[in-house]
Write a protein that binds this DNA or RNA. Sequence first.
DNA 1: CTAAAAAGTTAGGCTCCCCTAACTTGAGCG
DNA 2: CGCTCAAGTTAGGGGAGCCTAACTTTTTAG
Lengths: 159, 159
Amino acid sequence: MTLSLSENLEDYLETILDLEESEKVARAKDIAARLNIKPGSVTGGLKSLEAKGLINYQPYAYITLTASGRKIAEDLRNRHEIVRSFLEKVLLVDADTADATACKIEHIIDERSYKKLVCFMNYVEKDTQETDAFMKGFVDFCSIGGNRGRCDNCPECHE
Amino acid sequence: MTLSLSENLEDYLETILDLEESEKVARAKDIAARLNIKPGSVTGGLKSLEAKGLINYQPYAYITLTASGRKIAEDLRNRHEIVRSFLEKVLLVDADTADATACKIEHIIDERSYKKLVCFMNYVEKDTQETDAFMKGFVDFCSIGGNRGRCDNCPECHE
DNA sequence: CTAAAAAGTTAGGCTCCCCTAACTTGAGCG
DNA sequence: CGCTCAAGTTAGGGGAGCCTAACTTTTTAG
């Protein structure tokens, strides 16, 4: 029984983990601010997470993750980081865009692709001769000078 | 004014494009079957797409894409194909998984990352010496024999 | 040509999750 | 201590989108 969480609830968990770390404690107000929703909307999500045993929640009290909630939140964070890292280091997307898109992909990437991506990033980060040559080739290929019509379908990938 | 479409409506458009091509004509019944929803649920989506000028829809009649609807559907298909291709050819994910995940990523990948990915795939498909060496290295890295503890965070990426 | 089957639509209901506005709780200051 | 105000919750409402069941239209087959 691997309870399935909506993307929304996953975002709640991840946000709570972040807040626990940066603010020592998670407050409904801050969760709302991070998720860009109104405080009144947060309560429902918290109740739902409480019912699933993922957070400790009592009305008017601080919110903490349970062990299983923490596990899920950390897993999400890992996914986020791997995807973000791929976008930034391999595709060479700017940091903000990479982060925003990672935020969405982390929820939907399937387990197999994720594992392969982890492996891929581990490989890339070993920083071998092959990776170096490959990435240099990519940079050249996508650079204005290096494009030389070989990249017909390539939209301006080098703004 | 770039009207924003829900992922659901995007799926409708893409499905209609597929059906127009494979069946000559799109029927509500077939749309429902492809999207794994009940026929009764389709009508609402069609009305919404009609209101946005993306399909030609009259009750009880066949459904066709308008020019702008077709453009969006084709764009989505391109995204799908690029992402699918990346998952399959670069990450070496099996075809079914790649297709299923591409189906989801196509809706959420941002424009910049997408353009970079297009460029990346064009580069990879040039099949240069560098790419060949890089990919061989990746296969080795993820193969059971080649893993030799270097890949600590690497979950079984080589089932 | 007509009756049955198939396809499509409508209507009512449900879930999820957001919003606003009003109300309750609790924490800090005088 | 008690009051004030920020923080949190509740209640009512809405949109998106799905479902089922009943109903309408179209197609098809005799």
